[in-house]
């Protein structure tokens, strides 16, 4: 099942204006993604952890999200330290552990985790519907916002459609394996999913036309106002500024 475990809540972050949070998340992710200094990245990780704490998210579920980046991080830790040419840290027989390789792995790991946490805390704490409205506020093209909202609206419906088809094949004793029968079954099942989606789209479009859809998107989002937004803007600008200063003053990779 598709779920949004962080979207609802009443923490300080949940009550901020979605538009502000999207802008802040974008600025923060780009700054961290472009930084190189280990001190900067370590501080960024602390900031990100603070954001998660402020959002009062279920920590177990946050940790689950780490599995997404863990695979790639393990892959680079398994390869880069041994293949990167440079000063040798340790020598294990024929294998040499290189210092720049380890530093690069550390840098990438810190960056990935810091950005992941900030995104969970700032953006995943709103439903995609609110995100769509926030992007509308930021003057993204109407069609794109509309596409986001309609896609979001229908992923849940189509997921159920898929589960229904899956149940139907399971009742007929389908047991997936590495053979042509399995791939053919999946292909036909997905083909059916696309055909039904297209049919559904026609009906949805007709219903929209019936209700007078003329291509204009109306957002009735009332952005939360109040002192919290100002506090957030100030804190966020201070964190961005301090990260930028750290990065400029310690641009090289240091330990």
């Amino acid at each position: 099942m598709i779920q949004e475990p962080f979207a609802s809540g009443d923490s300080a972050i949940h009550q901020l204006s979605p538009t502000l949070r999207v802008v802040a998340a974008a600025a923060y992710s780009f700054l961290v993604a472009l930084a190189h200094g280990l001190p900067t990245l370590a501080v960024a990780l602390v900031f990100s952890l603070l954001m998660v704490l402020f959002a009062r998210l279920p920590l177990g579920k946050v940790l689950q999200r780490f599995t997404v980046v863990l695979g790639f991080l393990l892959l680079i830790w398994a390869i880069l330290p041994w293949t990167y040419k440079g000063e040798i840290l340790y020598q294990f027989g024929p294998l040499a552990l290189s210092r720049p390789g380890v530093l690069l792995c550390l840098e990438i790991s810190l960056k990935s985790i810091a950005i992941l946490l900030a995104m969970i805390a700032l953006v995943s704490t709103m439903t995609t519907a609110r995100l769509g409205h926030a992007l509308n506020r930021l003057h993204l093209p109407d069609k794109l916002v509309y596409l986001i909202l309609i896609t979001y609206r229908y992923i849940f419906v189509i997921e159920q459609e898929y589960q229904r088809l899956m149940r139907a094949v399971r009742i007929r004793n389908f047991s997936p394996g590495t053979n042509l029968h399995t791939y053919r079954t999946y292909a036909w099942l997905l083909g059916m999913l696309f055909v039904r989606s297209a049919e559904r789209a026609k009906r949805v479009h007709q219903a929209m036309v019936c209700r007078g859809f003329s291509g204009k998107f109306y957002s009735l989002l009332e952005s939360p106002r109040g002192y919290r937004n100002w506090v957030f803007v100030i804190l966020m600008s201070l964190s961005l500024l301090s990260l930028a200063i750290l990065e400029i003053s310690a641009p090289t990779m240091l330990l």
């Binding site: 596409l147 309609i150 896609t151 297209a198 789209a201 929209m208």
Partner: peptide, 15 residues
């Protein structure tokens, strides 16, 4: 074509 594109992209998301 928006409904078509949106619902198909939902289908690809699920697929």
């Amino acid at each position: 074509q928006l409904a078509q594109a949106g619902i198909l992209s939902a289908a690809f998301f699920v697929a």
